[in-house]
């Protein structure tokens, strides 16, 4: 059993608590590297989002008020831009600090798995109006479970069907929320 040494803690600060359970330091570095990269990408997205919001603010008519419809977009857009930029800098720094040790976090397979999930969700959105909620959700559950590593493939769909049918009974029949019905009414 590799229990961690009693750390020289003066007080239970948040950082200690977070770091307390990171037994595997290499895994922690991979994680830090990934978090850094993701932060940088998120920061870049926020920079774009900030610009879009600012452009929107310019196009709004503030109706000569101190605080009008455009005020909030100006403020939020500018701050989003600024914080996004900071996040890019910070994320890149975090990633390089951790990256020296941990070179590769995700494998190709990990990205494929996530891509597959995106595709599954898009296909679900397109197909549900045609085949109805129960069939659509059965497929969604089954494929997702298999993609995430469920070994028994047939069972994945059987379980999926049970979940979908229960949800349909509870929400559509029970609570009365109209879920998309296929040609066969469920």
């Amino acid at each position: 059993m590799s229990t961690s040494e009693p750390r020289a803690t003066h007080e239970a600060s948040r950082a200690d608590v977070v770091a307390g359970e990171r037994d595997d330091s290499r895994e922690a570095l991979v994680e830090a590297h990934r978090a850094g990269l993701a932060s940088a990408v998120l920061g870049a997205v926020m920079v774009v989002l900030g610009v879009v919001t600012l452009v929107q603010a310019v196009r709004l008519d503030n109706e000569d008020q101190v605080v009008g419809p455009a005020t909030a977009p100006y403020l939020v857009g500018a701050l989003t831009f600024l914080v996004g930029a900071l996040l890019v800098v910070r994320g890149r720094r975090d990633a390089t600090l951790a990256g020296a040790v941990a070179s590769s976090g995700e494998t190709r397979q990990d990205w494929l798995r996530m891509g597959a999930l995106v595709v599954v969700l898009v296909v679900f959105a397109l197909v549900v109006p045609l085949v109805g909620y129960v069939v659509g959700a059965t497929a969604l559950f089954g494929v997702t479970a298999v993609v995430l590593g469920m070994p028994e493939r047939v069972r994945a769909f059987v379980v999926g069907f049970s979940v979908a049918a229960l949800v349909f009974l509870a929400f559509d029949v029970g609570i009365g929320i109209a879920l998309p019905a296929g040609p066969w009414g469920f």
């Binding site: 909620y133 959700a137 969604l140 479970a145 379980v159 979940v163 979908a164 949800v167 929320i177 998309p180």
Partner: peptide, 17 residues
């Protein structure tokens, strides 16, 4: 895998509902 597949089903349910 079962938990996450279930979460996805409920997530889409949230949108419809």
């Amino acid at each position: 895998y079962a938990i996450y597949a279930g979460i996805l089903v409920f997530a889409t349910l949230g949108v419809f509902s």
